[in-house]
């Protein structure tokens, strides 16, 4: 009989049993400890790439900037000439809440711009040119946004489920008209030389009974729009025209449109009711012409001129209630 001095287990069994469990996390720990410097470097790199703008490093950026930004002009002339009444506060709240809801629904940006009277615009010649400055400023604020939609305070989006893309942007050439052959309330010249209508549309506006309406319009970021915003206000032109130009920037645009081919070839018109329908009080001398006035299921209503002798709050409440009623679902019988 041979005495065996063998261990209770053979060698292999031993190692298997008592070797510390090499779980995944342990392996990872070990790997990290072994390659401390490299790991540290990689982490630093990732942080720099993601959260900073350090040059010479590729920056992984998630494009979070919205494709469309809504610019809402609030607080027009507010708080300087007179106290703001509770009703004005209410109108402002409703209007802002409406645009907030719409922007959130479609992933658009929203920026609310304060239009209080400022000293630098107080000169007679500089009044209401604020619009141009705000557009420039917003374009800087959202450097990757393509379209900017200007909305006056007294507007209400009645059909928030419609996105701008499906409403007209995707099919812009068919939705817009670019010559004044069929609708020309101002009697501008219909034909001027050198106009090339094959250019893309960079500005979308509407015409009401009195001409161009800038209560609701869109502007596309481009060299053209940069140039338009630069040229829109010119002191030598304004000095000659400020008696005729009652609506300042609106009239200036009309003049530019009627004389300069480069302006004309990139402006597209939408029918008023598409983005800018009027309530019965506006355009009162054309009250029998249905092309101006809001009908149920129109996209946006613009209570233009309601601050001149009409009741903004009443109109706002009316359209707010109407929108709610039009979107009421049958199963929500209690509301």
């Amino acid at each position: 009989m041979t005495t065996s001095y063998s261990l209770p287990y053979d060698q292999e069994d031993y190692t298997k049993t008592f070797k510390p469990k090499s779980s995944l996390s342990n392996q990872l720990n070990k790997f990290i400890l072994q390659n401390k410097k490299i790991i540290l470097f990689i982490i630093t790199f990732i942080i720099l790439s993601l959260f900073t703008n350090v040059p010479y490093i590729p920056h992984l950026k998630f494009n979070t900037s919205p494709k469309i930004v809504i610019i809402l002009a609030a607080n027009e002339g507010g708080g300087v000439l007179k106290w703001k009444s509770p009703q004005e506060w209410s109108v402002e709240r409703s209007s802002i809440a409406n645009k907030k809801h719409y922007a959130k629904l479609h992933g658009y940006g929203l920026t609310i711009k304060d239009m209080t009277i400022k000293k630098r615009y107080s000169h007679e010649w500089r009044e209401s040119w604020e619009k141009v400055d705000i557009l420039k400023q917003t374009m800087r604020q959202f450097p990757n946004t393509e379209w900017f939609w200007w909305l006056d305070l007294h507007t209400y989006i009645m059909e928030p489920q419609i996105s701008l893309e499906q409403h007209f942007l995707e099919n812009l050439n068919n939705q817009t008209y670019r010559t004044l052959e069929n609708f020309n309330p101002l009697n501008l010249r219909k034909d001027i030389p050198y106009v090339d209508y094959t250019q893309p549309i960079d500005m979308i506006i509407t015409q009401d009974c009195g001409g161009f309406n800038l209560g609701s319009f869109l502007l596309r970021r481009s060299q053209w729009s940069e140039m338009l915003l630069d040229i829109w206000w010119d002191p030598a032109m304004y000095e000659q025209m400020h008696m005729q130009w009652e609506h300042k920037e609106q009239d200036a645009l009309e003049t530019l449109y009627s004389t300069q081919p480069w302006i004309r070839e990139r402006i597209g018109f939408l029918p008023l009711r598409k983005i800018n329908a009027f309530p019965p009080g506006a355009c009162s001398d054309k009250a029998d012409d249905p092309q101006y006035f809001f009908k149920n299921n129109d996209f946006v209503v613009n209570m233009a001129g309601c601050e001149w002798g009409r009741d903004c709050w009443g109109e706002m409440e009316h359209y707010k209630a109407l929108s709610k009623k039009l979107h009421k679902r049958w199963w929500k019988f209690w509301s």
């Binding site: 050198y194 004389t259 480069w262």
Partner: peptide, 20 residues
């Protein structure tokens, strides 16, 4: 595009008629 626009702005009749 920009060159054309510059010429069109520059030749505007409001500049042509401006007295100063």
């Amino acid at each position: 595009q920009v060159g054309k626009s510059i010429i069109e702005i520059w030749s505007d009749s409001l500049y042509f008629n401006y007295g100063s």
